[in-house]
Write a protein that binds this DNA or RNA. Structure first.
Lengths: 264, 264
DNA sequence: TTATGGATTCCGTTCTGCGGAACAACTGTT
DNA sequence: AACAGTTGTTCCGCAGAACGGAATCCATAA
């Protein structure tokens, strides 16, 4: 199945399709999964057995569900770079200082992923938790990151993910985005004015290590609170200070890896 | 490869072997991974391409590493049951009240997995983070869970994972463990006296929903602090109160699932 | 009991994932 | 500059493995 030169394994993809199905619909029965993926039940069964054998799927009565082993892998991914962990305290501080939601976002495969999320006292509870994947063009963090990438890489990402309009304010034009990124580069700070979610503004600054961008610190909150001078000066200043300190930590860090391998 | 009636898929296992390798040794080059798994480079390459295509692996220069997409799956697993999320605040409270490390542990495939971990003010920093997998026989949480399982299930778990001695105090005898579990059942509280890690004690209580065990709340700390009456009365009482409240929440919960599906 | 819906096992065929070898892209060396 | 040397990528023929369909098993219900 597939083009002549498909250097990729179908079976693995299928297995992960099964995992994705479980992720999307939660605990499900075999036939439900088979239906959804349009696969023979015998095949689905085999995939589920395999995943179960590996502890990536478990059963709850007659339902299959995600295995908790993924938690371990998720943490491993989130700590794959020791620098990520150093950002946590800064995110926490930003959340406290601003009272809003603060995040640390990293780019992977052209998407932004929330590696740390902390909510300040006034922050709205929302489902934007750790692991969430977002488009880069519509978020402050994403723009802070893209602004530090060479044009060609930005193009690759746009080609892959497009510029979908998430709200009426989302930038959907390539040229317009280039201009915006240019502005971010000059300012050193990226803004998001209801471009990602209606009624939510955001500010972000890049975090650099050696030459290149490690990720971005971001603060987000209701547009009626994050506005005016506070939005354009005070919060950005806090964030620049945080990013600065962070960059020092990260660049001259003692990479003391406190790994733990017990039962795998 | 494999027994005559092996109802499981080799290719998928191999792909996940690659993932595990990355998890263990961090960013690595192709040849390193191929060597370690004793696979042809072409094969390894194909697996890595596939995983990369799925965003479960990414490259950092000439190294391969875990993709951040696992973070999302990890979170999905950790929140697969809405009840897990309700435990978080209780874990937090226990950590604050006791000053020690508090956890919520769930059994999956015969192992205990830390679903929530919070550290109190006095708690020792250690690498026992979320996602950590532990043997059930040597931890307070594990014993609290096993005590509520039928004998045959306990046997299955022992058969699969054995009773390895993690310290000099670990229970390694099957009969002795049965007795201990009996005591836990009567008391309603499980103790761990340096059985898992030298110098660390723990207390745990089961959390039930309807008939069966959802998981266990546990508190752990240095054995010189967690001792005497405080260890055997005060902390257990706090935990029983917490578990009780929790069980009410969990049993009569409003399962308002605030899921988010954006870019997958 | 039979019927029904689902999960599991069996089996023959096909196709796909496999390793080896050839090729390409770098790096540093003489 | 030509060169080994090293690592990553692509090609290719074949063995073996994953596939779907059918048969079987296992509940629960009628």
């Amino acid at each position: 199945m597939g083009e002549p030169n498909d250097e990729t394994i179908q079976t693995t993809k299928t297995s992960l399709e099964v995992v994705h199905t479980l992720q999307e619909i939660g605990p499900a029965r075999l036939s439900e999964i088979a239906d959804r993926l349009d696969m023979a039940e015998s095949t689905t069964h085999r995939h589920l057995q395999t995943l179960r054998d590996l502890r990536y799927v478990s059963r709850d009565g007659d339902r299959y569900q995600l295995g908790l082993r993924f938690t371990r892998l998720g943490r491993a991914a989130r700590t794959r770079d020791p620098a990520y962990e150093m950002t946590q305290s800064h995110v926490q501080e930003l959340a406290e200082e601003t009272g809003e939601r603060a995040q640390f976002v990293v780019e992977d495969h052209g998407l932004g992923i929330y590696v740390h999320v902390e909510t300040g006292s006034r922050a709205v509870r929302a489902g934007f938790g750790v692991g969430r994947q977002i488009h880069l063009h519509s978020s402050s963090a994403g723009k802070a990151i893209l602004a530090n990438y060479p044009r060609e890489r930005v193009d690759e990402i746009i080609d892959r993910w497009g510029l979908p309009a998430l709200t009426d304010h989302t930038i959907t034009d390539r040229e317009e985005l280039y201009d915006e990124l240019e502005a971010v580069r000059e300012r050193g700070v990226a803004f998001n004015r209801k471009e990602h979610v209606d009624g939510i503004n955001g500010t972000a600054v890049p975090v650099r290590r050696d030459g290149d961008v490690l990720g971005a610190l971001a603060v987000a909150g209701p547009s009626h609170r994050l506005t005016g001078d506070q939005f354009e000066q005070e919060v950005p200043d806090m964030m620049l200070a945080a990013a600065n300190e962070l960059e020092l930590n990260v660049t001259y860090a003692t990479p003391e890896s406190a790994d733990d391998h017990i039962v795998e």
